[in-house]
């Protein structure tokens, strides 16, 4: 009980609403067996003892908590703008800490090396200074004015462009990014990473998107995002230690890692340590 710490009282994705059946799906949340199912049309979640857990149905996913969340699940106001296509990408299981999965999502410096010739390419490797803050009013980590040169920023992109990004960490294992939208200048595409912590070193990752893209086939949009995440997985499953080190001496960051540094600081401040390592082993 104590090892789940302060993260216990937060919301986590546990399945795609559309895929939910009456028979349901057995899964894990922070090491505890739960069942996600449909009853009378409504999504339900029960714990190992059959006790009903709180449920929210939002962003195409079912959300629950083992504890008592003090506040509602975050919102993504841009997702309600008319004309956006909402894309449930599906699930990708990764043998890594849920916190490492989020940290990787916040990182742009790996694009030329992990997503070569798609989200980045040499020699365009430089990360210019950007702004990072922990916004106390909403208790979220925000990175803004992030820029990166990308050969193929999105399924809809033709040729290389410099893409603007904003990143937002709105829950311990959830992040939303906003990026230049090639077909609609002035608007942002929204891509979210919802991470279900199965254990401290195993997670189900549910990417979700709200895009302005009228042309691409839904399956192509899904495949593009899945391809990106499979590339990320090859890194995430090979980091040592598996747990995210919150001890600053354990890993050496550079200026490009300002978002990661703020995320780690924010986790530590709140005692969000499920999937983290506080002192060097």
């Amino acid at each position: 009980m104590s090892e789940t710490g302060a993260m216990r009282d937060h919301w986590y994705p546990v399945g795609m609403t559309k895929q939910l059946t009456e028979a349901g799906r057995d899964t894990l949340l922070m090491g505890e067996p739960i069942r996600v199912f449909r009853d009378g049309g409504q999504p339900q979640v029960s714990d190992g003892a059959g006790r009903a857990l709180p449920v929210i149905d939002r962003f195409g996913h079912v959300w629950t908590s083992l504890g008592t969340p003090a506040k509602d699940l975050f919102t993504i106001p841009e997702a309600d703008q008319p004309g956006r296509r909402l894309v449930d990408v599906g699930v990708c299981r990764v043998r890594c800490s849920p916190l490492r999965a989020v940290e990787n999502f916040l990182d742009i410096a790996h694009f030329p090396f992990v997503h070569t010739d798609i989200l980045g390419s040499e020699p365009h490797t430089e990360v210019e200074r950007y702004e990072v803050e922990i916004r106390d009013d909403v208790d979220e980590v925000w990175a803004t004015k992030v820029k990166f040169f990308q050969p193929q920023a999105a399924k809809s992109a033709e040729g290389g462009i410099t893409t603007d990004y904003m990143y937002r960490v709105c829950a311990p294992t959830c992040s939303v990014l906003y990026k230049t939208c090639p077909p609609k200048p002035g608007e942002w595409d929204v891509i979210a990473l919802f991470v279900q912590p199965l254990t401290e070193t195993l997670c189900d990752v549910w990417p979700w998107m709200a895009l302005y893209d009228d042309d691409a086939e839904m399956t192509d949009l899904i495949h593009f995002q899945q391809m990106i995440f499979v590339q990320d997985r090859s890194v995430l499953e090979n980091q040592l230690p598996a747990l995210l080190p919150l001890d600053p001496g354990m890993e050496i960051p550079t200026r490009a890692d300002m978002t990661s540094i703020a995320y780690r600081r924010w986790l530590k401040r709140h005692g969000f340590t499920y999937g983290a390592q506080l002192v060097a082993a």
Binding site: D107, A109, H110, P112, F113, V114, E122, T125, S234, V235, N238, Q239, L240, P241, P245, M250, E251, I252, P253, T254, A256
Partner: peptide, 27 residues
């Protein structure tokens, strides 16, 4: 040691150019 000091990625997954070994994660 099979570990990049930056973000802990295994260096054995890295690539060699010239006389250098580079980490596959951030180069």
């Amino acid at each position: 040691a099979d570990r990049c000091p930056h973000r802990g990625m295994r260096l054995s997954h890295g690539y060699v150019r010239g006389e250098r070994l580079s980490c596959i994660y951030h180069g």
